[in-house]
């Protein structure tokens, strides 16, 4: 059993090619109940990616304007970094991951690769239609988070590949947005259902809206064709929300219909389904009445 701690991406990619290598970042998923679970890893070699500079940065892409977040960036950094003020829904999600101690370790890359149906940071990323970059000795490829996540604990990551960055498209930066989650206590908890929405209102009409729902399907999901029904919706400045209630409610209902949650020790499927309806409605409503952030960022 060896422990590798590369501080250059190229070395890490080389090491990742070895089939015995298990990648670890913050370890907050991998090392839960370690004494009971270590047996399943046998004689693996370990590679920590948390000190690789390329994976630690948060930056704006000069050409595209995309926000690029390195895979090893922690929830705490996302919650407190100036550039991330442009993605408040992701910050809201980062702030509910565990508590302070977990947020100091939990990485955005780990949250995605771990692929829990209830992963919180994944939900706004799906709403944003963010893209991940995957790198191996064979090269680098990109794909949307929406397709990267395949099922519980399943992703499109191939053996030997590292997730290096998450790219949030410029078009959602600074747009009104919101992440909401339903949990059951104020201590660390897991989402029963979560939802994220990002939208833009131009001249009193919705010009852009994307929604995602977490913990209700094997992976966080979006329904672009349903989101499209929000396009052009008139939400005049200061207008009472009841004017848009009908449309928003029907979007929420369609998300609930598409949800196929499980029944488990935390909640029943029926309840989760009903909560998808509630959270989607609230997330959209909250987003459409929440414009201050957009102005701040654009100014």
């Amino acid at each position: 059993m060896a422990w590798y701690q590369p501080n250059r991406l190229e070395e890490a990619v080389k090491q990742a090619a070895d089939a015995r290598t298990v990648v670890v970042c913050g370890g907050t998923d991998l090392f839960v109940n370690w004494a009971r679970r270590q047996g399943t890893y046998g004689e693996a070699d370990w590679m920590s990616v948390e000190r690789i500079p390329e994976l630690q940065t948060i930056s704006l892409d000069d050409t595209t304007g995309d926000l690029v977040i390195g895979a090893a960036v922690t929830a705490h950094q996302i919650a407190s970094h100036g550039l991330c003020a442009a993605v408040p829904a992701l910050q809201q999600a980062a702030r509910v991951v565990g508590g302070w101690q977990i947020q100091n370790r939990a990485s955005i890359g780990g949250n995605l690769v771990n692929a829990s149906p209830a992963a919180d940071m994944a939900v706004p990323l799906v709403a944003y239609d963010a893209v991940v970059a995957l790198q191996s000795l064979g090269g680098r490829r990109r794909m949307p988070v929406r397709t990267f996540l395949r099922g519980p604990r399943q992703t499109a990551l191939e053996p030997g590949e590292l997730l290096t960055e998450v790219r949030i498209p410029a078009r959602v930066l600074g747009r009104p947005q919101q992440f909401l989650r339903l949990d059951q206590r104020g201590g660390t908890d897991i989402s029963l259902v979560s939802a994220a929405a990002v939208a833009q209102v131009d001249e009193g009409r919705v010009s852009f809206a994307q929604v995602a729902v977490g913990a209700a399907n094997p992976v966080p999901f979006s329904l672009p064709e349903v989101d499209a029904s929000l396009q052009g919706l008139a939400v005049a400045d200061g207008a009472a929300l009841r004017d848009v209630d009908g449309v928003v409610a029907s979007v929420a209902r369609r998300y609930a219909e598409a949800a196929q949650p499980i029944s488990d020790v935390r909640a029943s499927a029926a309840y989760r389904t009903a909560m998808v309806d509630v959270l989607v409605r609230r997330a959209i409503a909250g987003t459409l009445t929440f414009r201050a952030i957009a102005q701040e960022v654009e100014e």
Binding site: N33, Q184, R185, G186, G187, I190, V265
Partner: peptide, 27 residues
Amino acid sequence: TMEDLVVAEGQVKNLSLLDYRMPGASD
């Protein structure tokens, strides 16, 4: 409001402090 050691077929189903929810400071 939140605590319950859930048993089914004689098995405890929520064997962790994550799924056996005791109140945190905000509760």
